[in-house]
Design a protein around this nucleic acid. Structure first.
Length: 365
DNA sequence: AAGGATATCAACCGCCTCACT
DNA sequence: GAGTGAGGCGGTTGATATCCT
């Protein structure tokens, strides 16, 4: 295929930059700036195209670049942001001073992605069922006991990293229950408070992907990465976040009622959210659940964007940035952190939603 | 030590958006 | 509104480094 227009007009050099070329570019940018990249190579005396100069400067020569490997904090932030933004490397890089989109992308592809992929299916497989799920929906009660509502079965390949990551008394009590394969078998009636006690370090230990299964009649899949669990008992304050749900149905009509039901189903996965949600989700005259306190609702022919304000304790929260994905009645949903800095125009908002939806894991009912 | 496999990352390619005419 | 060029972005490539047998 042809090259970029700016590169066609002249014979340009490609490949790695020499120290001499770097020096010419640095000298020119330092003295004159780069108002127009297409004119930089000629003025700087370089046989390169403007795009190549721009890339070299941004990714390598810029004085404010941070060199060296990524810190665990940076890696954790990348994982977290990738959960929100997907492959929008430039957006992710903006949150990492001194790092470029190319650097973040390479790091993700060469390091993080492999580790996440490697851990999937090897580490704990957690399934949760809700025997009294319907009852829970129709009778939301903030003071209700959860004892009999769900159980989980957990089979854990015992590794040092996993053992050191567990601080749940509930699980530690079961450590003598090891099967003939040497794996830890857990079958428990679970108190909701047990789940947040699972704590994983996303960097030093292998991140673990839990897979939740809903009952068949409500089935959709939820990938949940507990490596992003934040448990900080020193923080007693409440973390307030917005859960933004962007719903599209691919048609020109909308069904916000179904969307509301789906909101409820998804957030059921966070037990500590239930009391708050029970105040939000009400049954209407037809017996259909609706999310009454939708704060803002923007509609056009294709998109509904509803925002529910939720407040929950940080020690309980699973992961506010975690994407919840699924398809119910052809309505795609996404849970994401509603970022206050996203003051984009309506057209770019649509584009953003579309991009997010590309990362959805579609599940047929 | 050799060479094949794998990992890393700088650089390129093609597409998109936007501004300008 | 159509055409054009520049900047920006994400996906991909390929050269080099490192690891492994």
């Amino acid at each position: 295929m042809g090259h970029h227009t700016c590169c066609n007009k002249q014979k340009v050099k490609r490949g790695l930059w020499s120290p001499e070329e770097d020096e010419k570019l640095i000298n020119y940018i330092t003295n004159y700036g780069h108002a127009c990249w297409s004119s930089v190579p000629k003025l700087a005396g370089l046989q390169r195209c403007g795009k190549s100069c721009r890339l070299r400067w941004i990714n390598y020569l810029r004085p404010d670049l941070k060199r060296g490997s990524f810190s665990p904090q940076e890696a954790a932030l990348i994982i977290e942001l990738h959960g929100i933004l997907g492959n929008r490397w430039a957006q992710i890089a903006k949150h990492l001073p001194g790092r470029t989109d190319n650097e973040v992308k390479n790091f993700w592809n060469s390091s993080i992605k492999k580790k996440l992929h490697l851990s999937h299916g090897i580490l704990p497989d957690l399934s949760i069922t809700f025997p009294n799920y319907n009852n829970l929906i129709t009778n939301p009660n903030p003071n209700h006991s959860f004892d009999n509502f769900y159980s989980f079965n957990l089979t854990v390949p015992i590794t040092n990293s996993f053992m050191s990551s567990i601080n749940s008394p509930l699980i530690l009590d079961q450590m003598n229950n090891i099967n003939h394969n040497g794996d830890l078998n857990l079958t428990n009636q679970v108190m909701p408070n047990s789940l947040p006690n699972l704590s994983f370090d996303s960097i030093s230990n292998d991140p673990t992907w839990f897979h939740f299964n809903y009952p068949n009649h409500l089935q959709h899949d939820l990938d949940y990465n507990p490596s992003l669990i934040k448990q900080d008992n020193s923080i007693n304050s409440m973390l307030t976040s917005n859960i933004s749900l962007n719903c599209t149905n691919g048609e020109n009509s909308l069904d916000s009622t179904n969307a509301a039901i789906k909101i409820h189903q998804d957030l059921m996965m966070t037990p500590s959210l239930l009391p708050k949600l029970s105040e939000m989700i009400k049954e209407n005259e037809d017996g259909i659940l609706e999310s009454t306190p939708v704060v803002s609702q923007h509609t056009d022919s294709m998109v509904v964007n509803s925002t529910l304000p939720c407040t929950f304790p940080t020690s309980y929260i699973m992961n506010p940035h975690n994407n919840v994905h699924g398809v119910v009645n052809e309505i795609e949903l996404m849970e994401s952190l509603h970022m206050s800095s996203s003051s984009s125009s309506s057209s770019s908002s649509k584009s953003s939603i579309h991009r997010h939806c590309q990362h959805f894991h579609t599940v047929n009912l």
